[in-house]
């Protein structure tokens, strides 16, 4: 059991190194990468914005209710901004990414394997790691921070909508307190997290797809594993990064 897990981690690490080795070559032909940024990013945009709006609105409601008990509902902007920037933005976006883009990547690559497309590439003396895996990996890594930033902005808008429009928090206090309390380090924490999550989710998705057994059941299981492993990994990395940032 332990041996198998270790072997798996080792296999993922070796796979990561092989993919990273192909990334410069993939970047040299950016068209495929652009295509994958579109697939992973632009196509997830609607769901990211929708969820960001609702998460922000919930933050507005809950935050207002909580802060009101201490008579400091003016700090709603701070609470919403920090909550979104540091935690909810990166984590919720990463979980949605795993469910939306990650599964699509895994099943696509798995089906390419099952229908011999990857083998055909190898037979054409074309390395599928370079032409299939690396662009998809890079697309995910690039798309994630952008998605997180959009999620944050829409979330802030949602919180503002509830707090200022519905609960009548003073808009000046909302924004000025937020601007006074949020530091560049807080924003950076969110960006670092989103980069790490993008890295992890994309890696898991392409790894599972690339190594999926070439059957319908195999691809299905691999897709499920992508969601499960990505989600657990995101929360684990989130804890470690949060601890590291607070420890500074």
């Amino acid at each position: 059991m332990i041996g198998a897990s270790l072997g798996r981690i080792g296999a993922v690490a070796v796979f990561l190194l092989r993919v990273l080795g192909q990334c410069p070559a993939a970047l040299a032909k950016p068209r495929a990468v652009i295509h994958q940024i579109y697939n992973a990013g632009a196509r997830s945009l609607i769901i990211i914005m929708l969820c960001g709006l609702f998460v922000g609105m919930v933050l507005g409601l809950q935050g207002f209710d909580l802060l009101q008990r201490f008579g400091s509902e003016d700090a709603l902007g701070v609470a919403a901004a920090l909550g979104l920037l540091k935690e909810l933005g990166p984590v919720v976006t990463a979980l949605l990414f795993a469910g939306r883009a990650g599964t699509a990547l895994t099943s696509e690559i798995g089906l390419m394997r099952a229908t011999d497309q990857l083998t055909a590439m190898e037979m054409m003396a074309v390395d599928p790691l370079r032409h299939v895996i690396a662009p998809r990996f890079l697309g995910g890594v690039i798309a994630m921070p952008l998605l997180v930033a959009i999620f944050d902005i829409v979330g802030l808008f949602g919180a503002q909508l509830i707090g200022v429009q519905l609960m009548a928090v003073d808009p000046g206090a909302f924004w000025s307190q937020m601007q006074a309390a949020v530091e560049l380090d807080d924003v950076n924490e969110g960006i670092v997290k989103s980069l790490c999550f993008g890295f992890a989710c994309s890696l898991i998705a392409v790894y599972e797809g690339y190594h999926a057994p070439p059957t319908a059941q195999g691809v299905g299981l691999a897709t499920t594993r992508t969601v499960v492993v990505s989600s657990v990994l995101v929360l684990l990395i989130d804890y470690m990064l949060t601890a590291a940032f607070l420890g500074r």
């Binding site: 390419m112 011999d116 497309q117 055909a120 037979m123 054409m124």
Partner: peptide, 26 residues
């Protein structure tokens, strides 16, 4: 392999490319 062409059982065309781009791929 570059000197070898292979025809797969199911064709193994790249599904995200047109016929033209498939042939142009190698």
């Amino acid at each position: 392999r570059r000197r070898t062409g292979m025809l797969f059982q199911n064709g193994a065309l790249l599904t995200d490319l047109t016929v033209f781009e498939n042939v142009a791929f190698p």
